[in-house]
């Protein structure tokens, strides 16, 4: 797609001139203590916090979402699934808010066929937080079915400025026809991001 991508070690500083940050999934610190709790204190989070404050798009997927929540960059908490087990399955989510840098290529209400793979993926927020989320239009994705007991079937949220999004499902596993069911296409999430940051460059 013509963009330079760089992995950054969690103890290093982010390079300058970053257009967007992806925090991928992956059992940081073996999910010890709580998923994402230790990684939320990694040195690189300081830079991510600053970038977030300057409206740079940031997306956290699965463990990346858990880290953003533990770092206080997104509201709510992620608890053990109500099955108390890890679950890996394909499910459907709907786009609740298409006015974020990550969802602008979707229609509002559009369904995405996408997989989840997590043990602590049950989104929880108390009533006050839920009011803020609803009033601020910060719910980005919801599960079509109640797969894990998440509050309001929430699958992904954003911050009030809408530049930081976290989601438990894995769009990167649903963006190539070869590795997903015929009707799966979550690639607009990435294409939206690229368009956003491309636009920001010009």
């Amino acid at each position: 797609m013509g963009f330079e991508v760089e992995y950054v070690w969690h103890e290093h500083r982010l390079p300058s001139g970053v257009d967007l940050v992806v925090l991928p999934g992956g059992f940081s610190y073996g999910d010890r203590l709580r998923a994402g709790a230790i990684a939320a204190h990694s040195p690189v989070i300081r830079d991510i916090r600053e970038l977030g404050a300057s409206r740079t798009p940031i997306i956290g997927i699965c463990n990346g979402f858990q880290i953003l929540v533990e770092a206080g960059l997104l509201p709510g908490a992620l608890l053990l699934n109500d099955s108390l087990s890890f679950m890996c399955k394909w499910t459907h989510i709907s786009v609740e808010n298409n006015a974020t840098p990550f969802t602008r290529l979707f229609e509002r209400g559009e369904q995405i066929h996408i997989p989840v793979a997590n043990g602590q993926g049950r989104y929880y927020a108390d009533e006050a937080t839920m009011r803020e989320l609803t009033d601020g239009n910060q719910i980005v994705f919801r599960y079509a079915d109640d797969i894990n007991g998440s509050t309001m079937q929430i699958a992904g949220v954003c911050n009030s400025e809408r530049n930081i999004v976290g989601m438990m499902p894995h769009p990167e596993r649903a963006s190539e026809p070869e590795v997903g069911p015929a009707d799966s296409d979550a690639s607009p999430i990435f294409r939206s991001l690229l368009q956003e940051s491309g636009a920001a460059r010009q």
């Binding site: 999934g25 992956g26 087990s85 890890f86 679950m87 890996c88 399955k89 997989p115 793979a117 894995h170 990167e172 596993r173 190539e176 070869e178 590795v179």
Partner: peptide, 14 residues
């Protein structure tokens, strides 16, 4: 049983 295992991480599973 197999839904307890992540069978797609690495994005190679066809």
């Amino acid at each position: 049983v197999y839904s307890r295992y992540d069978h797609e991480v690495g994005i190679r599973t066809v």
